[in-house]
Simulated scan of single mutants.
Amino acid sequence: MTNQSTKEHRPFPRRPRSGGPADGRNGKTSSFRADRLVPAGLILLSVIPLVAGAVRLTELTGGAAVTPGNARFFAAPVPVVLHILCVSLYSLLGAFQFAPGFRRRRPGWHRAAGRLLVPSGLVVAFSGLWMTLFYARPPGDGDLLAAFRLVFGSAMVLSIVLGLAAIRRRDITRHRAWMIRGYAIGVAAGTQALTHLPWFLFVGTTDEFSRALLVGAGWVINLAVAEWIIRRRPRARISS
């Protein structure tokens, strides 16, 4: 009877509590994956526009023939050169701001990178606005696309300025949100290449209206993803 009673009242093996060793390993694995996969994905998204920018710089510095498609860049090369250089820095350096473990291991890196990202992002936005307003429009660019560029370029400037103002107030949550929005707008060229691909495969060449919608869709998709990220972890903090 004693042995039976002991067996009947013997407690079941306890499950590990949340936050125990097993959860810690899972957390470390998730952080490791985020540190690798998220920046890699953002850099991969930027490959097409970065390659296109490198080709454009090679044209300008290598004495390529002037054509109706590139004459505006040869006539005023400074804005497009600044745009390409700064968007390259902005997209590549900014990708690592989305690696939480990397930021925790190097707390000063986030601040140092931010001091480069803010002016780079503003140059990207203002040079894009300048080119929209003062460059001659190439074939296929109409009023609707110009309006989209002005709206989203201005939104990028506003996002970066509000993000900077928020961090000066030590408001980390709003700083994070506005900087994510600014980055989403700034790297939309990669998404725009992807929105054009199905159209080219199944429809063919674009006209002014369809091209404007496909380019605009790239900005809208990026901002939708940015808002999902912002709202998915509303209490997440970024080291300032």
Rank of each mutant, 00 (worst) to 15 (best):
A113P: 06
W178P: 08
M179V: 09
M179Q: 12
R137D: 14
W228P: 05
P79E: 04
R72I: 00
T132Q: 01
G53D: 06
V87L: 03
R115T: 09
A236H: 07
L145H: 05
F74V: 00
P107Y: 00
V220C: 09
F202C: 11
R17L: 13
N26A: 15
I160A: 01
F202R: 10
R170C: 11
L133M: 11
S91C: 06
S46Y: 02
P21M: 13
T67L: 11
H83M: 03
A65G: 03
T132V: 02
L197I: 05
I229S: 09
D143I: 10
G121R: 02
V118Y: 13
L92M: 10
E227F: 04
L158S: 12
V66T: 12
I221P: 06
F73M: 08
R232K: 13
F73N: 05
M156L: 05
L82F: 13
L85H: 00
E208R: 14
T58Y: 08
A95N: 13
E8W: 00
L158T: 14
A99E: 07
S31H: 12
R115L: 15
L116C: 10
G63W: 08
I238S: 02
R181P: 08
G24E: 15
Y135T: 02
H196I: 06
A54I: 07
M179D: 10
K28F: 15
V87W: 01
L50F: 05
G182E: 12
T6R: 05
A71H: 04
N222M: 15
S5R: 06
G140D: 08
V123H: 02
V161R: 03
Q192K: 05
I238R: 01
A188H: 04
C86H: 03
L116M: 14
L42M: 05
W109K: 05
G186L: 12
N3Y: 04
E208Q: 15
G41V: 04
R105C: 06
G94M: 00
T205H: 15
V215C: 04
F74S: 01
L213Y: 06
R17A: 14
R174A: 12
Y90Q: 14
R169H: 14
L194M: 13
T2N: 01
F12D: 14
R104D: 15
P16S: 13
